[in-house]
Simulated assay, not measured.
Amino acid sequence: MDSARLCRCVFGLMVVGLVGLPQVVLGGRRCNFPAIYNFGDSNSDTGGISAAFAALHPPNGETFFGHPSGRYCDGRLIIDFIAEELKLPLLSAYLDSVGTNFRHGANFATGGSSILPGGYSPFHLGIQMSQFIQFKSRISALYTQLSPSAGTTPPFKSFLPRPKDFSNALYTIDIGQNDLSYGFQHTTIEQVRLSIPNILSQFFQAVHQLYKEGARVFWVHNTGPIGCLPYTVIYGRSKPGNLDQNGCVKPQNEVAQEFNRQLKERVFQLRADLPGAAFTYVDVYSAKYALISSAKNEGFVDPFEFCCGSFYGYHIDCGKKAIINGTVYGNPCHNPSMHISWDGIHYSESANLWIANRILNGSFSDPPVSIGETCFLYQ
């Protein structure tokens, strides 16, 4: 019997609908997911964009991996802490052709990706869906066509998933930030706000595609406080009244909050449309904003100081240096663990860990279940 059915048959689940929010009695039980399939942007990219285009430079990866790992971070991302919490290996990027192991899932997220086509990256959510569908189809064909000889096991079985694992896996989605960011750069705040329904219609269709492919347990992150990214603050603080009480760019955060409000409505609609699936909506925005609001009390430096690269006067990407008029730009900081922001756009490992510790237990989730209990919602 598969793990999801074992969870619901043996341990049971009591769900009472209250204004669209189920109350869940779980009794401390945990699920065993055989795999994770992730879709997203650089917030959860474990090497996709690096493999597709150009490898990241040191000091990316220095804190945990000791070398660049394809992550826009000094170490691990939230998706890495999700895998660790579920006792699974860290996810290999689907686009990485060297040293990959997809036995326990695959990561289709790539840096710069958006839900809609266009923007910063060609690997929008529709492409990621197509990659997943092709991946699943080829796995199924391989298992069908290549049967093991007597007494032997095909070598591919050690690094590819089993067909039955797709319906028992956890599907994580963290995307949408770049749709807003690209819009802020190329249109107006109001135009970005008006584009939200169209963006989320594409998201809605993608989830329906995954459901048709057998996905049943979904963990959906909303978008973070874009207006609190140091990059955004540097370019947005000059306008009077543009910052909130914590120094974040207020108009951009308001659009992010509206995006999240409509995303949550879409997730509720998905629950109604796909009653055979389980959807957990995770309020990453609130977790990140809480960290930024209490940075110094949590042992971090000013949340708008970042560790690697430069946007002050000259734009120097993390991992590069430049000397301009005798000033060196791009030297990394000495203690990344004290910084919330790694490179002005992406979070540091220590910040990712702080956030993961607060979202994985269900404190910021609807319904309020931990990630290790989400299969109980699968009826």
Rank of each mutant, 00 (worst) to 15 (best):
S3I: 05
R5V: 12
V10M: 04
V10K: 13
G12A: 11
V16C: 00
V19H: 11
V19E: 06
P22F: 04
V24T: 11
V24S: 00
V25Q: 01
G27T: 13
G28M: 10
R29Y: 01
C31N: 05
N32C: 09
I36A: 04
F39A: 04
N43R: 08
G47K: 02
F53K: 15
A54K: 14
P59Y: 08
P59L: 09
G61D: 00
G61C: 06
G66T: 09
G66L: 10
F81M: 03
I82T: 10
L88G: 08
P89D: 13
A93E: 01
D96A: 07
D96Q: 11
S97L: 07
T100K: 14
T100G: 13
T100W: 15
H104Q: 14
N107S: 11
L116P: 01
P117R: 06
G118T: 04
G119C: 03
S121G: 02
H124T: 01
G126D: 12
S137R: 14
Q145D: 02
A150M: 03
T152M: 04
S158T: 11
S158L: 04
P161M: 05
R162H: 10
N168P: 00
Y171H: 11
D174T: 00
I175M: 04
G176Y: 02
G176H: 02
Q177E: 11
G183F: 08
T187D: 04
T188N: 07
E190V: 04
Q191R: 13
R193H: 12
R193A: 10
N198C: 04
N198Y: 11
L200W: 12
Q202R: 15
F203Y: 15
Q205N: 15
Q205R: 15
H208D: 03
L210D: 03
Y211I: 14
V220D: 01
N222M: 08
I226V: 13
G227V: 11
L229M: 15
L229D: 05
T232K: 00
V233G: 03
Y235P: 05
P240H: 08
P240M: 10
N242T: 09
L243M: 08
C248R: 00
N253L: 06
E258L: 10
R261E: 00
Q262H: 07
L263C: 02
D273R: 10
P275I: 05
A278F: 04
T280Q: 09
Y281D: 02
D283T: 03
S286I: 03
A287N: 05
A287Y: 06
K288G: 09
A290R: 00
L291R: 01
L291H: 06
I292C: 05
A295W: 07
K296L: 14
N297P: 00
G299L: 10
P303Y: 09
E305L: 15
F306H: 13
F306Q: 06
C307I: 13
C307R: 12
C307T: 12
S310Q: 08
Y312Q: 14
H315R: 15
I316W: 08
G319F: 06
K320Q: 13
G326I: 12
G326S: 13
T327P: 01
Y329S: 10
G330N: 13
P332C: 12
H334L: 13
P336K: 09
S341E: 05
E349D: 13
A351P: 03
N352D: 12
N352L: 01
I355V: 15
A356V: 07
A356G: 07
N357K: 15
I359V: 15
G362P: 07
G362C: 08
P368L: 08
V369K: 12
S370I: 09
S370K: 14
G372A: 13
E373I: 11
T374S: 12
